Simulated assay, not measured.
Amino acid sequence: MLKLIQNEWMKLWHKKGTWVMTGILIIITAGMMGLMKWINMQGMGGEMTREMIVQDPSSLGSTVLLLTVIVAAGIVASEFSQGTIKMLLTRPVKRWKILLSKFLTVNLFGMFLMLIGYFVHILFAVLLFKSGGGESLSSWSVWGKSLYMLLLSFGSVFVTATFAFTVGSVFRSSSLAIGLSLFIYFTGSTISALLSKYEIAKYLLFTHMDLTQFETGMMLVPDLTMPFSLAVLSVYIVVFLLVSYTTFVKRDVTA
């Protein structure tokens, strides 16, 4: 399995687009920090300190999600569009292992981007913002909150990438997978808010994708709890992976 993941990882980084996406992440993250500094200098939004900025890296989630979805949508679909699927599936390796290696590679890529973005976020927080009163940047509580928010932010990346991976695997279309994934991401919260008065809202995927809501207090639906959201997301993830597995394993190699 490790060899398969290594192979997928090497294939991913042999593409110029992967390096471009990493560069885009760095530029966008640095740009956002610069914008925050400008806003701070204009006296808007209150005084921001480096400790405040470090403790909330959740803004990284949106950029990483968009880039990870692109990889997730195409990692299987591209094998069909490029005609390499026949060679891939005729190898003496079980199909579920091939699929799993691709899925794990997608999420490793997402985590890698998250860490790169986090490093840039911290770097510019230190360079652009002054230390404030109260807890210093050396305090464990600051870093504990920071890493916890980073982990919660990755939740939406993982769920959306899994959905994109499933659509790309089933329909063999990266454009469809990207389109549907971004539609869910950008409109999901609005749909949940509109249906928040109804019981069904508690069981919709998009209601639970943003796990940072439990820290910010900006709940889409009242009375949600973290354990309940994690349970609902787990069910969706299992269903997505089962659909991907069933389709990929049973698909005709000449398709």
Rank of each mutant, 00 (worst) to 15 (best):
M1D: 09
K3C: 01
L4W: 13
N7Q: 10
E8G: 07
K11A: 12
L12H: 04
K15V: 13
K16S: 12
G17L: 08
V20S: 13
V20P: 08
T22F: 06
I26T: 10
I26A: 11
I28N: 05
A30F: 09
M32L: 15
M33A: 06
G34T: 11
M36S: 15
M36F: 11
M41I: 04
Q42R: 11
G43T: 10
M44C: 02
M44L: 14
E47F: 09
E47I: 09
R50K: 11
E51Y: 02
Q55V: 03
D56I: 06
S58N: 08
S58R: 13
S59W: 02
L60M: 02
G61T: 06
T63L: 03
L67T: 01
I70H: 07
I70M: 15
V71N: 00
A72R: 05
A72W: 03
A73G: 14
I75M: 10
S81I: 02
S81P: 03
T84A: 12
I85L: 13
M87F: 15
L88V: 14
L89Y: 03
L89V: 15
T90E: 01
R91Y: 00
P92K: 07
P92D: 03
P92C: 10
K94Y: 06
K94N: 10
I98H: 02
S101R: 05
K102C: 08
T105A: 10
F112P: 04
L113H: 10
F119C: 04
H121L: 02
I122K: 05
I122H: 04
F129Q: 03
G133A: 15
G134V: 14
S139G: 12
W140I: 09
V142P: 03
G144H: 10
S146L: 00
S146W: 00
L147G: 03
L147W: 08
L147A: 09
L151E: 07
S153K: 00
S153R: 00
V157L: 08
V157I: 15
A161Q: 12
A164E: 07
T166A: 14
G168Y: 01
G168S: 09
G168Q: 05
V170C: 06
R172W: 00
S174P: 08
L176K: 08
A177R: 01
A177S: 13
I178Y: 05
G179D: 05
S181F: 06
F183P: 12
A193S: 11
K197N: 15
K202E: 01
L205A: 01
T207F: 00
D210W: 02
E215N: 13
G217M: 06
G217H: 08
G217Q: 08
G217C: 06
L220Y: 03
T225A: 14
M226E: 09
M226W: 03
M226D: 05
F228W: 01
S229V: 03
L233H: 02
Y236E: 04
I237F: 15
V239P: 12
V239Y: 13
F240R: 15
L242R: 14
V243A: 14
Y245N: 05
T247M: 06
T247Q: 09
A255V: 11
A255K: 09
